[in-house]
Design a protein around this nucleic acid. Structure first.
Length: 654
RNA sequence: GCGAGAGUGGCGGAAUUGGCAGACGCGCAGGAUUUAGGAUCCUGUGGGGAUAACCUGUGUGGGUUCAAGUCCCACCUCUCGCACCA
């Protein structure tokens, strides 16, 4: 929607009341929240978003008796400790009691116009935080159950019917919104929480005091700190029967009805005799009809399709009508992973045994844009399917990797913004391998990626380098048996061999453990650079080169499968590269004979020392202290401490 | 406002457990090859500095430590999420 109009066709967007189907996800709110603790393999920010979305708040519902009436207004508050400071009551304009309350109001027409205006305003504008507070006195009063004071009842634009009871007690001294409202409409401020060591007065306040403190002006509860007052006051009110503790969630039930054709039909039938019924299990699934004409106005053809709508009631055999709304697409994406465990199964939603074997999904990958809805719905479905006895797990995805988005010109790439890079162009010019390699090399997957065309050339160049490397060696290595044992490796051979095995180790770990494909690719690039520098001499060299190239191609294949397969075949292998095992690194080849020790004086790098790996700590210290450059910094000074980190570093503190 | 994440060369990024900051790539500069261009290869490339020694440097300011991009405290900026939620 843009400026109240559809962004595609500019038709005005209006709100309508519709009768729709909902899933009662709120029944699982508490479990969905608590089980966030089980999601140890999920990014923190996704868990936070889920928690925010569920939005639990613990409070109390309190009845405020209506003066001159036989009913009361129930408000929800998380700050029962400020009840003595409640100086008026605010209702949402849509609150069911409003009509009755404004019956005798002097400015009734004005109020009704306000209510009407609120009804037509979209929620986003109406609930924006910088929206000016607006309210109307109803003419009616309620009684503060603690002070006994007569307090006015107002309607206010910022009170939402959907949240809590649609009514709040207004504590002007301790809630910023109420404070602003009170200032605008000249309503009394009553201070009931005094911050520690402070001497506030109502008249001197310029903003609400929302922090902790001790109770004042609160009768028998004076002096209590406000946290323990919450408990005591709630107990007291509950005993009096005028309040009860209540937990509220921001999470709403999940509206699943869509007035569209493209979607799975909601399997509900309406029978005049038997009422609203779920379709019989034997008649499932309800299939979307395909012999249809689409109306020009974009509406769903289903409601007008007699052969679809008209059906028989499976209970009484009489005439019945089908629901013509279809399911939200999120419904199917909430359980497909269970279906994947036995996709050929024709008899049931899925086979519980197969699901029990495969699930949970060890590693789930998806865009960050699904951080709330898809992932919350999948978690909800998993719990429901578990409670139906179909699944044994409570959480569907053990580990979650959220890919970043591709950013271009400072904004997320999207069709509606028109700032897309067409992969076709890239593929036509450089090939799919280059396109894949570049997007994986540019940054780690969880991060957003600012698209920069220039780097693509580099990836293309690298693949050409690989191609030439293999082609140039082809003649010498093609017929060589690389499994022939080699000994007497010279220093240069050993160096290359070490590089090869270091690369295998790093690439394997980067892919398996970290999903950091960018560093895996850079390690492969280093290996290619090393192969270019390497000067082969004789058969042993070519065996080593062949081994290196084989491993290189296999390691490259997840990123650039086409070129890897092509070169693999050119080496003379008949079977696809994909059928060969991933290389394993040889720990012995990586083991260094010499190691570079960094020498620091007072934490600053001053020299480096290459020593045999088995050199003793004492020996290294001696060597370090006799180093010419180190001597300059050490002579004439008192050595206070020498810190030696084996294989790495020696720090001389003077 | 609340919550989360991030901030490192001209750019994308690396540094995995506190131990050589800048891997790898782009870009740029110089050179080789070439009739020329492209492609390729070699060298250099954080800043300062006699271009040596050295100094300095990971958003800012403090702190912990022999040692901080990394840990702690405060702050700034950006991105994302939620947002008048009572």
């Amino acid at each position: 929607m843009e400026a109240g109009l559809c962004w595609r066709c500019d038709s005005p967007v209006v709100q309508k009341s519709l009768e729709q189907w909902f899933f009662k996800i709120t029944d699982y709110a508490e479990e969905l929240l608590n089980d966030c603790a089980k999601l140890t393999g999920w990014p923190e920010r996704v868990i936070t978003m889920q928690k925010n979305w569920i939005g639990k708040s613990v409070g109390v519902e309190i009845d405020f008796p209506l003066i001159g009436g036989d009913t009361h207004i129930t408000v929800f508050t998380t700050r029962v400790d400020t009840l003595y400071g409640a100086t008026f009551v605010l209702l949402s304009p849509e609150h069911p009691l409003v009509e009755q309350l404004i019956k005798d109001a002097v400015n009734k027409t004005e109020i009704e116009a306000f209510i009407e205006r609120m009804r037509h305003e979209d929620k986003i504008t109406r609930t924006a935080v910088d929206r000016e507070k607006e309210g109307y006195f109803t003419g009616a009063y309620a009684k503060n159950p603690f002070t006994g004071n007569k307090i006015p009842i107002y309607l206010a634009n910022f009170v939402l019917l959907e949240y809590g009871t649609g009514a709040i007690m207004s504590v002007t001294a301790h809630d910023q919104r109420d404070f602003e409202f009170a200032q605008k409409y000249n309503l009394p401020i009553r201070l009931v929480i005094m911050p520690k060591g402070d001497k506030l007065t109502e008249s001197a306040m310029s903003k609400a005091q929302e922090g902790p403190g001790a109770l004042v002006n609160s009768g028998q509860f004076n002096g209590l700190d406000n946290e323990s007052a919450k408990k005591k006051m709630a107990d007291y009110l509950e005993n009096q029967g005028i309040a009860k503790r209540k937990i509220n969630y921001r999470l709403r039930d999940w509206g699943i009805s869509r007035q569209r054709y493209w979607g799975a039909p909601i399997p509900i039938i309406y029978c005049d005799k038997c009422g609203t019924l779920p379709e019989a299990e034997g008649n499932l699934p309800v299939i979307l009809p395909t012999d249809i004409d689409f109306p020009d106005d974009g509406a769903s053809p289903l409601p007008d399709l007699a052969q679809f709508v008209n059906t028989t009631c499976h209970k009484c055999g009489g005439q019945a009508r089908r629901e013509t709304d279809t399911l939200d697409t999120f419904v199917e994406s909430s359980w497909y992973f269970a279906r994947y465990t036995c996709a050929q199964n024709e008899n049931a939603i899925f086979d519980p045994q197969a699901a029990a074997y495969w699930l949970p999904v060890n590693q789930y990958v998806g865009g960050i844009e699904h951080a709330v809805l898809h992932l919350l719905y999948s978690r909800f479905f998993t719990k429901v399917l578990r409670d139906l006895g179909l699944l044994k797990i409570s959480e569907p995805f053990s580990n979650l990797l959220t890919q970043g988005m591709v950013i271009k010109d400072g904004a997320k790439m999207s069709k509606s913004k028109g700032n897309v890079v067409d992969p076709e162009d890239l593929i036509n010019k450089y090939g799919a391998d280059t396109a894949r390699l570049f997007s994986l090399f540019a940054s780690p997957p969880e991060r957003d990626l600012e698209w920069n065309q220039e780097g693509v050339e580099g990836s293309y160049r690298f693949l050409n380098r690989v191609w030439r490397l293999v082609v140039n060696y082809l003649e010498q290595i093609k017929s060589i048996d690389e499994n022939k044992p080699i000994d007497n490796l010279c220093a240069e051979d050993k160096k290359l061999n070490r590089k090869l095995h270091e690369t295998i180790k790093k690439v394997t770990e980067d892919i398996q453990q970290r999903f950091h494909f960018n560093t895996a690719i850079s390690a492969i690039m280093e290996l290619v650079n090393a192969l270019y520098t390497y000067k082969p001499k004789g058969e042993a060299s070519y065996i080593l080169v062949k081994k290196s190239i084989k491993s290189l191609l296999i390691m490259l294949s997840p990123f650039t499968p086409h070129i890897a397969e092509e070169l693999w075949e050119s080496l003379g292998y008949n079977a696809s590269l994909a059928t060969y095992a991933w290389p394993e690194y040889d720990a012995a080849a990586i083991k260094k004979e010499e190691t570079l020790i960094v020498i620091q004086v007072n934490g600053k790098l001053r020299s480096k020392l290459s020593v045999a790996v088995n050199t003793s700590s004492d020996e290294i210290e001696k060597l370090a202290l006799s180093d010419e450059r180190i001597k300059q910094y050490v002579t004439g000074k008192q050595i206070r401490k020498i810190i030696h980190i084996p294989q790495k570093l020696i720090n001389i503190v003077v």
